[in-house]
Design a protein around this nucleic acid. Structure first.
Length: 308
DNA sequence: GCATGTCAAGTTGTG
DNA sequence: CACAACTTGACATGC
């Protein structure tokens, strides 16, 4: 069965996530910082549960959790632990509720740390910060039962092989909670599926195949070949494949193919994905509306196949 | 109230 | 060399 995933936010449903900035926190005395962070974190975890319930009502099978669910948690100055927050106990209880709900309803959960997490960087400070952030996301993933923390390979620095070697050295030393969740995704400027597949196969890191990035940044592999080989990086470790799908904002002949459209053009849905066992995250600005539309389109495509 | 500029962090490619 | 694009709002500030 194909299952479809929503990324982080909703368009029409009343689910909201709050955040704050270091700039706003730093002038406050510590106890007021913690009060503010506590209120935001509590709000966010309660809305995460609401998000999961909404997703379940819509028949959506996966949800990507916003990285700053607990904003600034790993920041050197403003950082904190849940135990330090006045509502820490309630927050932990709510996390458990999210985990139970996702398990009962089989909603697959994932994280996607943003571009600042770069394990291949030649700069040790960047790598150290990245590891901190991954540890935070792994603790969160553990608490809610998420099986995927997906990142990009990072910069190429003019030499992808050396960059991937640096990545491998860091990967080997990561805590188990990070290592067994970490996945790599082909990106739209540097690393193609062809660059990453041998590395992923060798390191036993699952490859999240982003077909939109592959179309923006192609290699010698067809979509069918990339899908199949990426699939093996998941099934060989007993896991369900994960892919990403989006459509270009202004069509494929515009100069802005990398930016995401509101909805998925049904022609962008790869035929070879029909009937597969995998999760597909829908990266589209119309959020849950776009996921629901893809599910309807795929239903129609399946119907047409059955009739033929 | 409402409009507007800002927000921790990295890297690449464009103008 | 500066800035936008990745993702995207929500927040903080100032009128």
């Amino acid at each position: 069965m194909l299952r479809f995933g929503l990324c982080c936010l909703f368009k029409d449903h009343a689910v909201s996530f709050r955040t704050t900035t270091v700039k706003a926190l730093v002038p406050l005395p510590r106890n007021e910082q913690l009060l503010k962070l506590s209120a935001i974190s509590l709000h966010n975890v309660q809305n995460l549960l609401l998000a999961l319930k909404t997703v379940q009502c819509l028949g959506i099978g996966a949800f990507r959790i916003m990285s700053p669910l607990f904003p600034r948690m790993t920041h050197p100055e403003a950082g904190y632990s849940l135990e330090q927050l006045p509502d820490g106990k309630t927050i932990n209880a709510s996390l458990k509720e999210c985990k139970d709900f996702a398990f009962v309803h089989q909603i697959r959960l994932s994280f996607h740390p943003d571009q600042f997490v770069v394990l291949s960087s030649p700069n040790p400070r960047v790598v150290a910060n990245s590891i901190m952030e991954l540890q935070y996301q792994a603790a969160l993933a553990e608490a809610v039962g998420a099986d995927v923390i997906n990142i990009h390979a990072g910069g190429a620095y003019g030499d992808k092989t050396s960059a991937l070697n640096r990545f491998a050295a860091v990967f080997a030393e990561l805590p188990e909670a990070v290592r067994n969740r970490l996945t790599l995704e082909n990106d739209d400027v540097s690393y193609t599926p062809e660059d990453l597949l041998p590395f992923c196969e060798q390191q036993r890191i699952p490859l999240v195949y982003d077909v939109h990035h592959h179309r923006c940044n192609p290699d010698s592999l067809s979509i069918e070949e990339a899908t199949e080989r990426a699939c093996l990086t998941w099934t060989s470790v007993g896991r369900e494949q994960y892919c990403h799908l989006s459509s270009p904002r202004n069509g494929w002949d515009s100069g802005t193919i990398k930016s995401h459209a509101d909805f998925i053009d049904r022609n962008d849905f790869p035929d070879c994905w029909l009937g597969r066992n995998m999760t597909v995250d829908i990266e589209a600005k119309a959020k849950e509306l776009a996921v629901v539309k893809v599910m309807e389109d795929v239903e129609a495509l399946n119907y047409r196949l059955r009739v033929q």
